[in-house]
Design a protein around this nucleic acid. Sequence first.
DNA 1: AACGTTGAAATAGTTC
DNA 2: GAACTATTTCAACGTT
Lengths: 97, 97, 97, 97
Amino acid sequence: MTTLQVSSQKQLRQLIEQIERLEEEKKALAGDIRDKYAEAKALGFDVKIMRKVISLRKKSQSDRQEEEAVLAVYLHALGMLDEPPAEPPSHIMDAAE
Amino acid sequence: MTTLQVSSQKQLRQLIEQIERLEEEKKALAGDIRDKYAEAKALGFDVKIMRKVISLRKKSQSDRQEEEAVLAVYLHALGMLDEPPAEPPSHIMDAAE
Amino acid sequence: MTTLQVSSQKQLRQLIEQIERLEEEKKALAGDIRDKYAEAKALGFDVKIMRKVISLRKKSQSDRQEEEAVLAVYLHALGMLDEPPAEPPSHIMDAAE
Amino acid sequence: MTTLQVSSQKQLRQLIEQIERLEEEKKALAGDIRDKYAEAKALGFDVKIMRKVISLRKKSQSDRQEEEAVLAVYLHALGMLDEPPAEPPSHIMDAAE
DNA sequence: AACGTTGAAATAGTTC
DNA sequence: GAACTATTTCAACGTT
């Protein structure tokens, strides 16, 4: 069977149109966000830092701590950090023998 | 000055909260879209192909715009279009004798 | 375990140095490309149009590939292609009666 | 004059081909880098952190410090940091009155 | 030399 | 959990 039933065609068309409408709305919101950043920039704020702040707020604290712990271990391995890092949870250290 | 003025702090806080609100709405829309695809799948449609169709529709739209832009550039380069397309290219085809 | 094993440290260091070397080479090539454009400009060519031409060539290449992929998907969906395209889609066009 | 001299055409063609060759090489290097990261991942290293390490090495130290100072100011403005930040250079604080 | 624009690179999310 | 896609982020470029 190489064609859809007429009723299915109609359904499909509706679904696709609904999705496209939702995507347009999403795109509009993305534009609004861009505008907000532009506004902030015009007021003299540092947009890049603002993005960082917002992403920090999103990230859970534990995630951040874990990331920093691994980073410390790696920097230490490269001799870019004198103090050996404190005590990261074990499951992070796959590459350690 | 190690801190922002109180008025700036307030401004910053407002901007960030507005952005976060917009991002939430955007995320909600993404969820709606996901739901629509799930609905389609439940009705027996192939979601992968639907995505392809939608992206093709998007692409053909932007392609058409791009094509027109390129055409304008070329026509202008050949002196067949008085108005420079979008931004004024300074010296077109100097290498032509 | 707060630090990596010495052997892992060594491995990590090597990987990072290799990557940094590759990135330098990449950067050098980017410089070469810039030089080429400068040369072209000095010869009187319109760099902007050249860029457009090159990007069009790239795009038409990938477009052609995309088109073929989509075509394969559709043909398969219509049962006119035995081999599934790339990955085997599990159930094509269930909504067809 | 709507066409290039034959000699110019030839020149243009050569330049474009040279650029396309350079871009291919660049692309190949990007692939090599991706492979290296894949290798690292297979050995159990955290690729995301490796990227961070490499970008830290690239960034000049002063850049990093400036960024952190501004971030501290913003976090303080949002009440996410109790201690007032130390002493960032003045030119960063445009939005402060 | 800052600005916006564009294209590439990286990350996040989704699917199987 | 591996691969693919989509989104976001970052850097280069031309422009004003």
